[in-house]
């Protein structure tokens, strides 16, 4: 009975505080750190889930990982230290952006190779087209007449 009353008093005391102070689930002192935390947890993969980052996943392991990232950031760890620590435990699998090394070189180079290769082919086509037909003529009279006729045909049908 007494216990209940004390609890009630404590509850009433806390009430206005609770109503005003909405805290982040993972509070930081600076907005920059908050942002860093958000970015980090969105770029780490939950090892247990199908394919989710640890920010979005409700799995217990994702929560453990968020807690660990939070703990390390609060202790002043750099992003590199945080990812290294998690890779050390769960493997490179947890990084959504794999680092650049000899295994992933081809992956990172793909867009560059594809665009450069494609542009080279197009340049080749242009150069070949020029060589073949150096004096590109404008439309001949016959062509112009035929084109006009085509355009007229279209208008007739409208």
């Amino acid at each position: 009975m007494l216990m209940g009353r004390i609890l009630f008093a404590v509850w009433v005391l806390l009430l206005p505080l609770a109503a005003s102070a909405t805290s982040e689930v993972y509070p930081f002192d600076t907005a920059a750190d908050q942002e860093r935390f958000r970015t980090l947890i969105s770029e780490l993969r939950c090892p247990k889930c199908q394919n989710q980052n640890i920010a979005d996943s409700n799995a217990p392991i994702a929560k453990d990982m968020r807690d660990e990232v939070y703990r390390m950031l609060r202790q002043g760890a750099t992003n590199q230290q945080v990812t290294d620590a998690l890779v050390g435990r769960f493997g490179e699998f947890v990084l959504y952006k794999p680092g650049f090394d000899e295994r992933t070189a081809l992956l990172w180079a793909t867009p560059l190779i594809a665009v450069l290769g494609g542009v080279l082919v197009v340049i080749g086509i242009v150069i070949r087209g020029r060589r073949r037909d150096p004096s590109e003529s404008s439309l001949s009279d016959a062509e112009r007449r035929r084109a006009e006729q085509l355009l007229e045909d279209r208008d007739d049908g409208a």
């Binding site: 990084l95 992933t104 992956l107």
Partner: peptide, 23 residues
């Protein structure tokens, strides 16, 4: 390549990795 690269690496026995949004 981004979708199948993890599969190829796994096939070559070069470990598992993930390729996602930040990439």
């Amino acid at each position: 390549v981004g979708t199948l690269y993890p599969l190829v690496l796994d096939y070559l026995g070069a470990g598992r990795l993930s390729i996602g949004e930040p990439f």
